Simulated scan of single mutants.
Amino acid sequence: MARVSALVVDDAPFIRDLVKKALRSQFPGLQIEEAVNGRKAQQVLSRAAFDLILCDWEMPEMSGLELLQWFRGQPGSEKTPFIMVTSRGDKENVIEAIQAGVSDFIGKPFTNEQLAAKVKKALHRSGKLQVLQGRQAPASGGTAQDSVANLMGGRKPDSGSNSVAASPAAPPEIKPAISETGATDSDTTDVQDRPATQQVRGQAQLRLAGGQFACVVKTLSLRDALVVVRRSEHMPQVFESGVLDLEQDADKSVARINAYVHAVASMEPTMDCEWIKVTLKFVDQDPQKLDYLSRLIASGSAQRHYSPSA
């Protein structure tokens, strides 16, 4: 049987491992290679052909969009599915990727089932699913446009919206505050003796595959964050991948930081506690995101005493 191959491109080892694990479990015969950024992927693609490319958008040296634009300029590349795996859903970015020839989108965070469905559809359209599985796959229509609504929170590119989805409103009593110290798995009382600096009146949102949470950032470092979210039907799960959206009021800039859930704990020692603490470990290696975090940390402060009802 002929080989069917895929190239996974992402600067975060955790995300690459997540994608590879999902692909191997759903498509056992698929041959998988990886690249740590667009520049490395360009080198790999210059010497080998692949039947599928799964690529992150924001990467150092060469972004996913730049790789896509280069790749579509190569002879015979138009038939190869190029799926953008991204936490970005801004209208302008989505349209630019479609114009550059993207085949489909997978929004971060994603489940294994969502990834498998996108890959199966892409391989079916290119005729490689039958080769991989040795049987005829069900017909699956659609193009990259079908994923735009999901990526942009149910709105098409011409809707004029710039957001991924309508963010759940944060409780009015919660005021986001950020510390220049790293988050830990212990209680947040350890920040009480640290000197406070100017507060950052920012917005924060935690996006997981099962839902979105408006949140308070209790502590923040280049490696991790401790956030507080309201308890809901979908509880964050340890090792679940997600995206932390950080916004500054000063310039309305947003950093979308890829992360995974490292720990979950109740704010109070009661079973009916309304608030939970979530420790996130960042997996991004993008210098631009790290620079944004550095600037955000430098201007932030710890919330010395936190009470959801305060």
Rank of each mutant, 00 (worst) to 15 (best):
G154E: 10
V264T: 12
K289C: 04
G134I: 04
G210S: 11
S232A: 07
G160N: 05
L296F: 01
I95K: 14
E180C: 15
Q212E: 08
L18W: 03
E274M: 02
E233Q: 14
K20V: 08
V229K: 03
V191G: 06
N150P: 06
L206E: 07
G160I: 05
V254N: 00
D286E: 06
S301Q: 07
R39C: 06
H234S: 08
G107L: 01
E274F: 09
V102E: 03
L129Q: 01
G64Y: 04
I32L: 06
D11I: 14
A177G: 05
P176I: 07
A165F: 15
L208T: 14
K277M: 11
Q212C: 09
N258T: 15
D249Q: 06
P168C: 14
T181A: 02
V119Y: 01
R3Q: 15
V243N: 03
Y292Q: 11
V44R: 15
K121L: 15
A41F: 07
N162C: 12
K175N: 14
K120R: 07
F213Q: 04
G64S: 09
W275P: 00
Q74N: 13
P81R: 09
Q43P: 00
S140V: 15
W57G: 02
M267T: 13
A149K: 13
T197Y: 10
G101I: 08
A263W: 14
V227K: 08
K289N: 04
G73T: 04
P171Y: 00
V217Q: 00
E173Y: 12
K79L: 10
G127I: 06
H305A: 12
S307G: 11
S221P: 05
S126K: 06
R256P: 01
Q203N: 09
A183T: 02
K128F: 10
G153D: 06
A2I: 10
S266Q: 02
V36D: 02
A35K: 02
Q69R: 00
Y292V: 09
S232E: 13
R231H: 12
V243T: 14
R231V: 11
S294H: 07
R295D: 09
M1D: 06
P109N: 07
S186V: 05
M271T: 14
L226G: 06
I83G: 05
L226E: 07
A35I: 03
R16S: 14
L23K: 10
K128H: 13
L67V: 10
S163T: 11
Y292P: 02
P172V: 12
L226Y: 10
D10V: 13
H262K: 07
G160D: 04
M62W: 05
Q212T: 15
V4N: 02
V94E: 05
A100S: 12
D17E: 14
N37P: 03
D158I: 06
W57A: 09
A250N: 15
N37D: 11
S87Q: 03
R304C: 11
A209G: 07
L151I: 12
L296I: 00
L208N: 03
D10W: 11
T111W: 01
I276M: 02
V19A: 07
S46N: 01
A2C: 14
D56Q: 12
A12K: 08
D56Y: 12
W57E: 04
S161W: 07
A117C: 12
L68R: 01
S253D: 13
G89M: 02
